[in-house]
Amino acid sequence: MSTGAQAKGGFTHVAVLYGSDEEFLDAVVPFLAEGLAEGQPTLLGVEPRLEGLVREALGDDADEVMTLRRAQQYERPLDALRRNRDLFAAHAAAGAPTVRVVGDVPHPGVGVPWDGWVRYEAAINHFCAELPVMVLCPYAENAPDSVLADVQSTHGWLALPGQEYRPNPHYIEPATFLSERADCEVAPLERRRPDLWLENPALAHARHVVGVLAANTSLDERSVSDLVVGVSEAVTNAKVHGKPPVLLRAWVDHNRMAVAVSDCGSGPRNPFAGLLPDEGSRSQGGLGLWLANQLCDRVTLAVTEEGFTAYLVIGEPPPVEVGGSPAGSR
């Protein structure tokens, strides 16, 4: 597939690995220039140094490229998912046959937690599936191996030298990817004895004890407050939409806290529940899960033979260190 082609079904999600500024520009500049030549909306959302290089290479045409402000567009993963989906849909509704986007997603190689962003990379394939959008995602080759493995799993297309793209044989459908990742994230928690265990807690009591336990960590006041509200939403969902008994467990480290709220029901039917505010119905607790996702650093939904569990995490482990310079800096 050349840069002028597009995958059947609308959304084309391309990963490109680069080892130098020159390789970055070789992939990005022709992609944007072709969009500009065809009169397509062309958007750029990369870190400032790389944006400057791209605009310099494009010359006078750079004025036609719209900037995605990273401080706003890529501050929180689910905010970015909602904003980008709405932005792409608006261009499509205005009659754009194709929208071209270049965006470098934050990751541990640049000191940013990856949990939320890998969900973004997977979920955008679902939420934008019918939109006429081509997204080119540049990743530096010295990004952590775990990030590069996830890139392989969440992008349907891979960039080749010479502005050619090929289908990615390692791509995993979003629902499957998110479900498998949830299983991997939950396992370490379940192996450790919880610091808190409550069965059928009253809502006020659940909020109180989680707040007291979180106060013993180094988490700031806002993070503790966000976790308490997120837990409140999860407990309410379990009581209203699940099946008793409702079980609340919590695990605490000095700079991190995880809470699991379980019931014996089957959980939301929609595997993407809670990722966007209009996904799922109020009757299935979709809005509560969406609010929890906005407040917590990570929300993982897990369905087992025993029932449904929502895991909520505030605080993150130390960022992954990368040998040499940070990923993306050359």
Rank of each mutant, 00 (worst) to 15 (best):
L81W: 06
R85D: 02
D86F: 02
D86H: 01
F88A: 07
A90F: 14
A90H: 15
H91P: 04
A92K: 02
A93R: 15
A93I: 02
A94F: 10
G95F: 13
G95V: 12
P97E: 10
R100T: 09
R100D: 14
R100C: 11
V101E: 06
V102S: 04
V105W: 14
V105S: 12
V105E: 04
P106C: 07
P106A: 07
H107P: 04
P108A: 07
V110T: 13
G111D: 05
P113S: 03
P113G: 02
W114D: 15
W114P: 01
D115V: 09
V118G: 03
R119L: 12
Y120W: 10
Y120P: 04
E121Y: 00
E121N: 14
A122K: 01
A122D: 00
N125T: 13
N125K: 10
N125M: 12
A129I: 00
A129E: 15
E130H: 12
L131G: 06
P132A: 09
P132K: 08
V135G: 00
C137M: 05
Y139K: 08
Y139M: 15
A140Y: 05
A140T: 05
E141M: 12
N142R: 09
N142M: 05
P144E: 06
P144S: 08
D145V: 10
S146M: 10
S146P: 04
V147W: 13
V147Y: 07
V147I: 15
L148H: 05
A149T: 15
Q152M: 01
Q152N: 01
T154H: 05
H155V: 14
H155Q: 14
W157Y: 06
L158V: 09
L158G: 01
A159Y: 00
L160E: 13
Q163E: 14
Q163L: 07
E164A: 13
R166Q: 13
R166H: 10
N168V: 00
N168E: 04
Y171H: 08
Y171D: 03
E173K: 12
T176S: 11
T176R: 14
L178G: 05
S179V: 08
D183Q: 15
E185Q: 14
A187Q: 08
A187S: 04
R191L: 09
R191Q: 11
R192V: 13
P194W: 06
D195M: 07
D195Y: 07
L198D: 05
E199V: 09
P201M: 05
P201G: 03
A202V: 09
L203H: 04
A204I: 03
A206M: 12
R207N: 10
R207F: 08
V209A: 11
V210S: 11
G211H: 11
V212R: 14
